[in-house]
Nucleic acid binder design. Structure first.
Length: 695
DNA sequence: GGGGGAAGGATTC
DNA sequence: TCACGGAATCCTTCCCCC
């Protein structure tokens, strides 16, 4: 606050409001004197380097807004109708998908524990129930309970500010209080999460969890089964897939070292399977009629099932509450889960009119993917605050945003979402794309001490690479100055680089790669007369070599099947092509492979994609079920490998088309080899997918 | 003008 | 502890080169 020129005061005040009030809509803070609270927060942090840096950042967004306004001045009727034309074309496709999903009776569900970490701690320490509690430390709060939120305390707020807000409660109509800090205990949270996931899995064996406190469930099939069977017990029977058939072959692992073996095995499978071809391979629920969601009873059933899930989890976890959302896709379900928080649920009606009605007054910020910066761009650049306003201004959006951005915003405005789930479009190759570590410390300067930091962090990263058997072709150095300015520099390992290795793994080679970059930055800062002083350093690795996990001698695991037999080379095998498709096709159940037209190239490719997606989903789902940890791990690997075998889409990677195809080819080969291990799963998944595919 | 790489921004939990 | 995290991923912008 100190050195601010007075004429800037109002601007800074308004900036500060949006800077610190970004979670204003969070639950539990209704009726809070937000302005007063923001003033206190600003007072406490207003002159810090952190805030200064944030304000600079804000300047960037303001520049964007200014440029956008200039652009809009020349946005005339002609440009508008061109934009509208493009939008309309895309919208038609989106609406077709929406109708297909609705016709299949798609019901997506997102469940989310209320203030999860804090709730677990309060359950175990009931004496804290009525006190403001923050899980975390004076540095950072990860979760605050609803009591603390009455003082304006939130997650991601520095602890000392939370503490100060509680102490200064009287300034905004709250009593003075002491914020109680509880250290996070992740083992405990993981255990609780497991209990909940076991219950979720009864309703959707393929559930997806992206953090400990939330889960994404596709209830479509379960609701069909429940509507038909009445009880939960009978419904789960209809949902269960039959046991895998007995295989003649023992271990069932393919032999990835030998191309011919793949083929031979694949051929053999087709023959062996033929007699069993009549087996019912999909969950019985697939055959049931889809739920008609225009029928009010169907909606009530979905509501009742969600309420049942919440009640069961609550009982099983010692009283922890969850909020839930239902909707025709995961994007809307996620938003809906936030509507009645805490301990409530909401359903977004399916169908375009219902969805648009729900979105009309919904602030864009509530939608996942719309962060503070995008919110500001929309609001200041276009005067758009709600999804309804966004829908009206899509032509302008089209003019101002890059293709991905405007597609995303159109999806948001129309309330459409990815068909299969939130992760549908990731997992291009199934492997992690980056691995790194970063550390915050008291400001450090001087080349020697900084190099020591680098070595320490490189050692952490190297250890993690080693335990995973991963080697990286690229390393990135991240630096944050004591003024909170962040910058990154990176170096590639291949020939000509400082290490002369194609891939690096050890701490020494990481340091060899990155130390020159660090020296460079130190030297440049010295030249500027402002020695480099850092508060954070990070080392990140990426561009991994194909992963080979270390294992005990003689031990076989699925990763063997996924690792290419030899280094990929153009001569290895003709990229793509009929051999791969034939091998994949030979893996399909005979009833599908034998369908009329199944041998057409396009049909084959569709079948291959279905097989791949099915294997990924099935294995991932099975991995979430309770049971032996090693087994679960293997299934997860299978899911990843199967996902890795997806054919290259238009959006795949940065490599050239040829690179993508050969990558797909080798991944597909590896997958074919791996399929032997989880054949039963794949067959059932394929049958279900083909039988269940809308349209 | 586009492919492709580098830098770094934004977003999520 | 007078103080604002860490990890991962995707997107945008800029620039070089053909």
């Amino acid at each position: 606050m100190a050195e601010r020129p007075p004429n800037d005061a109002s601007r800074i005040a308004s900036v500060a409001t949006s800077l610190f009030a970004h979670a204003a809509a969070k639950g539990g803070q209704e009726g809070l004197d937000r302005e007063k609270v923001n003033n206190i927060i600003f007072e406490l942090s207003g002159s810090s380097s952190y805030t200064k840096e944030k304000l600079e950042h804000r300047g960037d967004a303001e520049k964007w807004v200014a440029a956008a306004r200039r652009k809009l001045e020349t946005f005339d009727g002609t440009k508008r109708s061109v934009a509208a034309h493009h939008l309309k074309k895309r919208e038609a496709a989106l609406e077709a998908t929406r109708r297909a999903m609705d016709a299949a009776g798609t019901v997506c569900c997102v469940v989310d524990f209320d203030m999860f970490y804090a709730a677990v701690e309060l359950r175990d320490r009931p004496e804290l129930k009525d006190k403001p509690v923050a899980v975390g430390g004076p540095g950072m709060i990860t979760t605050a309970n609803y009591v603390a939120r009455k003082w304006g305390v939130r997650s991601a707020m520095p602890g000392f500010i939370g503490q100060e807000l509680c102490r200064r409660g009287p300034e905004f109509g709250m009593p003075r209080a002491e914020l109680v800090f509880v250290r996070p205990d992740f083992e405990k949270y993981t255990a609780v999460s497991k209990v909940a996931r076991a219950i979720f899995a009864e309703y959707d064996p393929h559930l997806a969890c992206y953090s400990l406190d939330e889960a994404y469930l596709d209830l479509t099939l379960y609701l069909r089964a429940r509507a038909a069977a009445g009880s939960h017990g009978e419904a789960t029977k209809l949902l269960a897939t039959p046991r895998p058939r007995k295989r003649k072959r023992g271990a069932g692992f393919g032999e990835p070292d030998d191309d011919d073996d793949d083929e031979a095995e694949a051929d053999g499978v087709g023959d062996d399977e033929a007699p069993d071809g009549d087996d019912e391979a999909a969950a019985p629920a697939v055959a049931l009629p889809p739920l008609d969601l225009r029928d009010d009873a169907a909606g009530r059933l979905a509501d009742a099932v969600l309420a049942e899930i919440r009640a069961r989890v609550r009982a099983a976890t010692g009283g922890l509450t969850l909020s839930g959302g239902l909707g025709p896709n995961f994007r809307l379900a996620k938003v809906a889960a936030d509507v009645r928080k805490p301990d409530g649920q909401h359903r977004v009606a399916c169908g375009r009119p219902g969805v648009l009605a729900f979105l009309r007054t919904l602030p864009c910020r509530k939608v996942g993917g719309v962060g503070r910066v995008l919110e500001q761009k929309l609001e200041d650049g276009l005067g758009v605050r709600t999804c309804g306003e966004l829908l009206d201004r899509l032509p302008e959006v089209h003019a101002l945003f890059a293709p991905k951005g405007r597609d995303f915003l159109q999806d948001v405005a129309l309330g459409v979402g990815a068909a299969g789930g939130p992760e549908d479009d990731d997992d291009e190759d199934g492997l992690p794309k980056g691995l790194g570590n970063e550390r915050t410390f008291r400001p450090v300067s001087g080349l020697g001490p900084l190099l020591a930091k680098l070595e320490a962090i490189a050692a952490i990263v190297a250890a993690r690479l080693e335990t995973r058997g991963m080697r990286a072709a690229r390393a990135t150095l991240k630096l944050k100055t004591s003024a909170f300015h962040v910058t990154t520099r990176d170096a590639r390992a291949p020939e000509g680089g400082p290490t002369r290795e194609r891939y690096v793994q050890s701490a020494a080679s990481l340091v060899a790669l990155l130390a020159p970059l660090l020296r460079d930055e130190v030297a440049k800062a010295d030249e500027r007369g402002a020695p480099l002083e850092l508060r954070l350093m990070g080392v990140r690795t990426s561009d991994f070599e194909v992963k080979v996990a270390p294992r005990a001698p003689g031990q076989r695991n699925l990763e063997d099947a996924f690792a290419p037999a030899r280094p990929p080379s153009p001569k290895y095998r003709p990229p793509g092509g009929a051999d791969v498709d034939a091998a994949v096709l030979a893996e399909l159940p005979p009833d599908i492979a034998g369908q009329p037209g199944a041998d057409g190239p396009r049909r084959r490719r569709v079948a291959a994609v279905a097989a791949t997606a099915g294997a990924a989903g099935e294995a991932r789902g099975r991995a979430a079920e309770p049971g032996d940890a090693v087994h679960r791990g293997l299934l997860l690997q299978a899911a990843r490998a199967a996902a890795a075998a997806r054919p290259p889409g238009p959006a795949a990677g940065r490599r050239g088309r040829r690179g993508r195809v050969s990558r797909w080819a080798s991944a597909a080969r590896a997958r074919v080899a791996a399929l032997a291990a989880c054949r039963g799963d794949v067959e059932r998944a394929v049958a279900r997918l083909l039988g269940d595919a809308p349209g």
